[in-house]
């Protein structure tokens, strides 16, 4: 059988894998960046700023940063000046609650809110090259910074919702995120090595996609893989999961734009 990972067929071979592995093993609890589980070749590709295709989007983001848009004809730089100074460390503390709306924002939502709230421009759709470029550019300014998000106060209910979802079995395969990314991290699932499920490399360039993609696109692939409901890009479900993933990954370094299989 030709098995394409993450297509409608779901995670091929997953039932077999789980059959062998049940009861779930108590795995090593250290949370590592996704690149730790990648091949040497992919690690090298990610580390080389020219060979890493994700850097094409970072370059685009740099141009977009200076481009006046919307009713106000302001650019990101009009308010935030040099991104390497003002955006350093920002991605490491996202997602975060927006004080004005009380909603949980990831970087994409923050950038789009700057467009609508401060630039008088339209929000950009997920997976457009523009939003990916701006997100990658902002995230890249935090490369090497350690993830540290707030989960107290107004963030607490979002964190709790994300934590719950992470441990809830879903889909026809009846698997939770934790059953793969905690109990079976380091094990192989067809062509992949299962990682700890850390978001700090995203947006990432996936060879399978031949393009850069958002973390929510990756999460949709995981949902589909277990034949569960895929939530929308930017949905509250994935946002709260994103917060939980970040808290789990506290101290792991940002490596966006990462390169993945």
């Amino acid at each position: 059988m030709q098995c394409s990972r993450f297509l409608v067929s779901g995670f091929c071979g997953v039932a077999g894998l789980m059959g062998v592995l049940l009861p779930v093993l108590a795995a090593d609890q250290t949370v590592r960046p996704g690149s730790f589980y990648m091949s040497k070749n992919l690690q090298a590709l990610q580390a080389d700023d020219i060979a890493n295709p994700g850097m094409l989007w970072v370059s685009d983001g740099e141009s977009l940063w200076k481009q006046p848009v919307g009713r106000t004809q302001k650019s990101c730089a009009s308010c935030h000046d040099a991104a390497d100074v003002t955006m350093k460390g920002v991605a490491a503390r996202y997602p975060a609650v927006d004080a004005e709306s009380g909603e949980l924002f990831n970087l994409e939502k923050r950038i789009n809110t700057c467009r609508t709230r401060h630039q008088g421009a339209e929000a950009l759709a997920y997976e457009t090259d523009e939003l990916l470029a701006l997100t990658a550019y902002v995230a890249h300014q935090s490369r090497g910074e350690r993830v540290k998000v707030h989960i107290d106060g107004p963030a607490a209910p979002f964190y709790e919702a994300g934590r719950k979802r992470f441990y809830t079995r879903v889909g026809q395969l009846n698997l939770s995120c934790a059953q793969c990314h905690e109990a079976n991290a380091g094990r192989r699932l067809r062509g992949d090595t299962i990682s700890d499920g850390v978001g700090s490399g995203w947006p990432a360039y996936r060879l399978e996609w031949q393009t850069l993609g958002s973390l929510h696109r990756r999460l949709r692939a995981c949902s589909l893989g277990v034949r569960a409901r895929q939530f929308d890009f930017g949905s509250p479900e994935y946002l709260s999961l994103e917060l939980y993933l970040a808290k789990r990954a506290e101290g792991v370094r940002v490596e966006a734009p990462a390169v993945r299989r």
Binding site: I50, A51, S63
Partner: peptide, 25 residues
């Protein structure tokens, strides 16, 4: 969006006879 068609990495300067490494995506 203006999208650069290529990213090139090479030194601006080199000594005569030196090997110059060039990378492009």
């Amino acid at each position: 969006m203006a999208r650069a068609p290529v990213r090139i990495s090479m030194p601006d300067e080199a000594k005569k006879g030196e090997i110059v490494d060039i990378k492009a995506i």
